[in-house]
């Protein structure tokens, strides 16, 4: 990882409200090369908020501050909306959790993939269609011509997520943030979708941020892992060394995962300590 794709220093995301400010992400710092970085943590630990902040899509009234966020050496802080549009879709993208909600229900699949081409690659008509069909083929959809003309509600969850991946990767971006891309799918389909994602990321040499709460998937799929708690990055380690993690929170997360081979009368609960946030 000689080349640094994404460099984040002291990222803070907070949401002011009448009852005080909620800090969703606290002083998060990390770098990403053309590698796979996993981010794990419980619900509400700030994983997804961090992902959206990197894409400049923090919902209002959220406030993003950082010492530094650069992408390919370009500053991402204080960009105008027009500048963001040059990056999003074309150079950085995101695969979201549930295709049922993240695909537009009244647009044909082919049209939604073609839209990414039209917006980012400056191609239209036949060429956009050709690329969309090629991309559907690349995500291992058996009958691209048929699926091209289907609407999202006519697809299964696994097919929908593959269409989603096709839609987000057709413009060949450098950075992909996958926000729990398999959490909404049946277990049998999860592996298939992961394999497709894996192959695409490898072939195209993309940087990947893989957000998940599934420790097994993350440790087998990623190179490095960040563990988040309460908006803070508690520990960073190599994926293969996750089981030797030092932080008590990471150890607790690992211990809380039930095992198929070991009967336990009571499952372990995750220990949390607000002291860690200081």
């Amino acid at each position: 990882m000689s080349e640094i794709l994404l460099d984040v220093q002291d990222l803070n995301v907070s949401f002011p409200s009448q009852r005080g400010t909620t800090k969703a992400v606290r002083n998060a710092s990390f770098t990403l090369g053309r590698e796979r970085l996993g981010i794990v943590g419980e619900s509400g630990s700030g994983k997804s908020t961090m992902g959206r902040a990197i894409l400049g899509l923090t919902p209002s009234p959220g406030i993003v501050t950082a010492k530094k966020i650069t992408f390919n050496g370009e500053n991402l802080l204080g960009r105008s909306e027009a500048d963001w549009q040059l990056l999003r879709g074309r150079r950085m993208t995101m695969v979201m959790q549930d295709p049922k909600y993240s695909l537009n229900p009244v647009m044909k699949i082919g049209h939604q993939i073609g839209e990414t081409c039209r917006l980012n690659l400056g191609v239209t008509g036949q060429e956009a269609q050709r690329r969309s069909l090629a991309m559907l083929d690349a995500v291992k959809i058996r009958d691209p011509d048929r699926v091209y003309n289907l609407y999202p509600h006519e697809l299964s969850g696994g097919m929908g997520q593959r269409a989603m991946i096709a839609m987000m990767l057709v413009a060949e971006p450098d950075l992909l943030i996958a926000d729990e891309p398999t959490s909404a799918l049946d277990v049998t389909v999860q592996n298939e979708v992961l394999r497709i994602l894996d192959a695409l990321v490898r072939d195209r040499g993309m940087g990947l941020i893989f957000i998940s709460h599934n420790l097994t998937v993350v440790s087998s799929f990623c190179d490095r892992i960040l563990v988040m708690y309460g908006g803070k990055i508690l520990e960073e380690c190599k994926a293969k060394e996750l089981h030797h993690a030092k932080h008590p929170y990471t150890q607790a997360l690992i211990a809380a995962a039930p095992s198929l081979y070991e009967r336990r009368a009571e499952l372990a609960t995750v220990v949390r300590n607000p002291e860690w946030l200081k």
Binding site: L55, Q85, G89, T93, D98, Y101, L103, L119, N120
Partner: peptide, 14 residues
């Protein structure tokens, strides 16, 4: 809805 965020990730303006 989520698909609005998805559209913006694809590079659509607001």
């Amino acid at each position: 809805q989520e698909y609005i965020i998805a559209a913006r990730i694809k590079g659509r303006s607001y």
